[in-house]
Simulated assay, not measured.
Amino acid sequence: MTIESEGISPLLQRTRDKKMFNVFNIAFFILLVFICVHPFYYLIINSISDNTLSAAGRIAVLPKGINWSNYVEVFKQECLGTAAMVSLGRTVIGAALTVLASAFLGFLFTQASMWHRKFWYRFIIMTMYFNAGLIPLFIVMKNLGLTNNFWVYVLPTIVHLSTSSW
């Protein structure tokens, strides 16, 4: 730090290039926020607008003919509570078991005494790149008895996320 710059705020010491970078950086992130938030805003204004106007595509920036009947119909559904509990259970149980499985695999692959460690590591990495497809996955889930079962939401995700973290 030079003698002239002592006592001067760091904001005033910025060069013109740094100021321009900050302006473009802030503008870029404002644009990024708009791009990320706009679809949700558009969804909300269409859901509370008049259904005929929304279906005709006449809703652009502000909602027109505010109508709450869509939300009334959704909350009349008897299975809404069950769906919320399935989502909550899938999230909580899936996250806990995925962390446990990832920690277990991480511990195993750090042990030099693990039997054929390089082979198993490469085998798990290989499964990340090769996917059989949707129909073989369904056949496997059916043979394991996981169709029409809560665990179909949790178990495949645990295996996939645990191995993809490597």
Rank of each mutant, 00 (worst) to 15 (best):
F138T: 06
L53G: 00
L105R: 04
T98P: 02
K64Q: 12
F24G: 15
L161W: 05
Y153P: 00
I93A: 09
G145E: 03
D17K: 10
L32A: 15
I30A: 15
A84L: 15
T91Q: 12
A60G: 10
Y42G: 03
S5Q: 11
V37A: 14
I93Q: 07
T157G: 02
F104C: 06
V159A: 00
A96P: 01
N70Q: 08
S9T: 14
M114F: 07
Q77L: 10
C36D: 08
N22K: 13
Y42Q: 12
D50A: 07
Y41H: 11
E6T: 01
I30M: 12
V86P: 05
I139A: 11
V86G: 10
L43N: 02
N25Y: 13
N22Y: 14
A27H: 00
F29H: 10
L100K: 03
S102Q: 01
L80I: 15
G133P: 04
I8G: 06
S69P: 06
S162H: 01
P10G: 11
E73Y: 13
F138W: 07
T15V: 14
I158Q: 03
N67K: 06
P39L: 05
F29Y: 09
V72M: 15
W166G: 00
M85F: 10
L134V: 01
I66G: 05
F107V: 13
L134K: 04
A132H: 04
T82I: 11
M141L: 14
Y121I: 00
L146Q: 03
E6I: 09
G89T: 08
N148G: 13
L100C: 08
L144K: 06
F119C: 05
W68D: 05
F21H: 11
L32F: 08
M141N: 11
N149L: 08
F107C: 09
I158F: 03
E73C: 07
N149E: 12
I66V: 15
S54L: 06
A132W: 07
F109W: 03
I59Q: 07
I30G: 09
N67F: 09
Q13M: 13
V92Q: 09
V140H: 02
F34Y: 10
Y129K: 01
R58F: 05
A84K: 10
C36A: 15
K142L: 12
G94L: 05
Y153N: 08
V152C: 09
N131F: 00
Y71S: 03
T98N: 00
F28N: 10
K142W: 10
W115C: 04
I125P: 04
